[in-house]
């Protein structure tokens, strides 16, 4: 992992994840969900984490808040956050970080507020000083929800997904102003137009509040709009990390390349949609490169040994053939 660290100087980094591994206990034994994941995040930076369902991207995010499901366990690694190791903290100390310093924007805004309590009261649960009308106005105005000022006695089901997501952003980002904001596919359940508005809002807030962000999604279009740097996950491993522009201009890992080729807009009309042959099933348990079974350029070495990260151009790639001229 030395190469990973060497890529950016760890000093001044807000978040530095090293060799993170998470396993899930299932009926068929332990399944590694995340293996050897390392990345850094500077203050104010937006790091996009992209991958298909089950690639472990959301698990990484949940591990950062230490709120993993009961059957999941962090088996190794270090999560450095502003000088502290989150994995060594006791639960009460961790709880004090949540919300105030590490915020979360959830995936499903419609179900992320308690259905039995008015939204006004729930705002007050999480934020102090809201009895001051000016503060409330500033908060709601900041996310474009001025219209909600006189509807605060309403319940979550009376609002749209877009309104609720803005409200959650108002609480988690604008209200708490955390150093680190974790966004778990915050736009997947929203309409395309609302999606764009929410993304714009998040970018605007980053500039105003200065929070760094880890943004998880499976949508390459979304991630290209918002991220400074992008990490691509496959079967629990981070296979490529690169600046956003670099990743789209010069994808290095065969999986990243296959992923970009599968974007429909890059195709001519009438041409069949391209897919990646094979399936991801079982790849989590492979000892070699997890993508080897589906990789068009795999060598025998790929099936035996998982590649270490290599610096290739501006990217950091876990591929034995990275840097080769193919």
């Amino acid at each position: 992992m030395a190469a990973m660290t060497a890529a950016q100087s760890p000093a001044g980094q807000l978040l530095s994840v090293r060799d993170l591994a998470v396993v899930f206990r299932t009926r068929t034994g332990e399944v590694p969900a995340v293996r050897e994941v390392s990345f850094d995040l500077a203050r104010g930076e937006i790091f996009g984490l992209v991958g298909e369902s089950g690639s472990g991207k959301s698990t990484v995010l949940t591990a950062l808040t230490r709120m993993l499901a009961r059957n999941a366990r962090i088996t190794s690694g270090r999560i450095g956050f502003d000088g502290a190791d989150l994995l060594a903290l006791r639960e009460p100390a961790m709880r004090r970080l949540r919300g105030d310093r590490i915020g979360l924007i959830p995936q499903r805004p419609m179900t992320s507020l308690s259905p039995a309590t008015s939204i006004g009261r729930q705002l007050r649960w999480h934020l102090d000083g809201l009895d001051d009308a000016g503060r409330l106005k500033e908060l709601l105005g900041g996310v474009g929800l001025d219209a909600l000022l006189d509807r605060l006695d309403g319940y979550p089901f009376e609002f749209s997904g877009g309104q609720l997501q803005r409200l959650l952003i108002a609480v988690a980002a604008l209200g708490k102003q955390p150093d680190l904001l974790l966004a778990d596919e915050p736009t997947t359940t929203l309409d395309a137009t609302v999606q764009a508005q929410v993304l714009r809002l998040l970018l605007e807030l980053r500039d105003r509040v200065g929070s760094a962000m880890v943004f998880v999604t499976h949508d390459l279009g979304v991630i290209s709009q918002i991220s400074d740097r992008i990490g691509v996950m496959y079967a629990g491993r981070l296979v490529e990390v690169a600046p956003a522009r670099e990743l789209f201009a010069a994808p290095r890992h065969p999986y990243t390349r296959a992923l970009l080729e599968a974007i429909p807009v890059r195709h001519r009309r009438g041409e069949p949609l391209r897919t990646i042959p094979g399936t991801v099933t079982g790849a989590n348990r492979l000892s070699g490169c997890p993508f080897a079974p589906r990789c068009p350029i795999a060598l025998d070495l790929c099936r035996e040994e998982n590649p270490a990260p290599r610096e290739t151009g501006l990217s950091l790639v876990r591929c034995h053939r990275a840097g080769e001229d193919l």
Partner: peptide
Amino acid sequence: ADYVSFARAMGMSERR
């Protein structure tokens, strides 16, 4: 439920 996770992620104590 999602709303319990969100409240926890906002630092709400288990008791509350």
